[in-house]
Simulated assay, not measured.
Amino acid sequence: MRVLMAMMVAVLLAGCAGSTMDDARARTPNKTLSSAKADQLVAQCVQFAWQDEAVFGVDAAAYLQPGKGGGYTVYTRAAESFADIKIEPSGTTIHYYAVEDNAVSKRRLAALATCL
């Protein structure tokens, strides 16, 4: 029963986050970064970095899912911040989006930058 409830919450959360992400993708990313590392390694690192409770406190949730058109998307609760991570011929490209430009979104960008 608990597993079923957890799955339902995850589906609902992904649905809400999806529209927020689509709206954000319609504009220019807050930051575009690149890496020589594989997209999967960067995505896993970002997810792990965003889950650091010492940095983000109780809001240290980060989720990893396949990205639209390939690659990966790492996002926070309600997609307040998210990163689209995709392999390109020149290397891995990371598009970082944040709903608000505040201290938390800047810490998330800094944590992401440690994964490059």
Rank of each mutant, 00 (worst) to 15 (best):
V55N: 00
F56V: 04
G57P: 07
V58H: 03
D59G: 14
D59Y: 10
A60W: 01
A60H: 05
A60F: 01
A60I: 03
A61F: 00
A61H: 00
A61P: 00
A62P: 04
A62I: 07
Y63I: 05
Y63N: 05
Y63W: 04
L64K: 10
L64M: 07
L64Y: 04
P66F: 00
G67N: 02
G67Q: 01
K68H: 12
K68T: 15
G69S: 08
G70N: 11
G70K: 14
G70Q: 11
G71E: 02
Y72D: 12
T73P: 10
T73E: 15
T73C: 10
T73W: 05
T73R: 12
V74T: 07
V74E: 06
Y75F: 15
T76W: 03
R77D: 15
R77C: 13
A78E: 12
A79Y: 07
A79Q: 10
A79N: 08
A79F: 08
E80I: 07
S81N: 15
S81P: 05
F82C: 11
F82E: 11
F82P: 11
A83D: 09
A83I: 06
A83Q: 05
A83T: 10
A83L: 07
D84H: 06
D84G: 02
K86N: 08
K86F: 03
K86S: 13
I87K: 08
E88S: 11
E88Y: 02
P89Y: 02
P89M: 02
P89G: 01
P89T: 06
P89Q: 02
S90L: 02
S90V: 03
G91D: 09
G91M: 10
T92G: 04
T92F: 06
T93L: 12
T93C: 02
Y96V: 12
Y96R: 14
Y97W: 09
Y97D: 13
Y97H: 11
Y97N: 11
A98C: 08
A98F: 00
A98H: 11
V99M: 11
E100G: 04
E100L: 14
D101E: 15
D101Y: 08
N102I: 05
N102F: 02
N102D: 15
A103Y: 02
A103W: 02
A103F: 03
A103C: 01
V104K: 13
V104L: 14
S105P: 08
K106H: 13
R107M: 12
R107N: 07
R107P: 00
R108C: 04
L109N: 06
L109V: 07
